[in-house]
Write a protein that binds this DNA or RNA. Sequence first.
DNA 1: GCTATATTCAACCCATAGGTTGAATATATG
DNA 2: CATATATTCAACCTATGGGTTGAATATAGC
Lengths: 109, 109
Amino acid sequence: MTPPVLDLAFAALSDPTRREIVQRLAKGAARVTDLVQPFDMSFNAVSKHLKVLERAGLVRRTRAGREHHIALDPEPIRRIAGWASRYERFWSDRLDKLEAFLKANRKRD
Amino acid sequence: MTPPVLDLAFAALSDPTRREIVQRLAKGAARVTDLVQPFDMSFNAVSKHLKVLERAGLVRRTRAGREHHIALDPEPIRRIAGWASRYERFWSDRLDKLEAFLKANRKRD
DNA sequence: GCTATATTCAACCCATAGGTTGAATATATG
DNA sequence: CATATATTCAACCTATGGGTTGAATATAGC
């Protein structure tokens, strides 16, 4: 049973619009309207993207009157980095590995 | 124009079955049949997952007769790690950031 | 050459994703 | 109070995802 936290985080970040929002939020929290502004897309579309980010835990929402303040929560990104780091060892010697495999499975003649 | 390489890699890794396949491949290349075995799922379903991983560049396929040998290409994972590392700074001081934001936007009375 | 094995291709199904538009809701402000 | 602003909710549309089954294709081995 893999907890779905990585599922949601990876899925949320697979959309370029959402990654752009995350990047924007790295510079500081913002209101929904502020986040809509750079995009050529309806307000509602961005609002939906924010809900996806929120569900994935990448973003926290605090209501202040009629305004919602959206702040980055980098914890899921940290989890992703942790997951990816398991393959660091690979980043240097993948060609060696492939070679070794091909050698091991070479037809014996 | 963000090249879609991260889109594809993040999307591919959002599925737990595919992450499991990647993990399995970290131990060495394998044939399609070998990769199907651990899953309670049709051969064709796994074959489709492999195509997704291949399209995302996470996996390389070399045909050897009727067998296809699937090997991990960790480069996209490296790219993801690079993307995520931009938020490392955040991993320690996000609470400070949130606090600062709330303070800055506190109603003046 | 015939049969078994490894694999993809194609068609289909249903759920979800990403976008739209048109309300509804809640809070500010003159 | 009336109106403008900030935001979600709901319904809809089309495309894609993940799975199935049933071929088709290519290679291996007797």
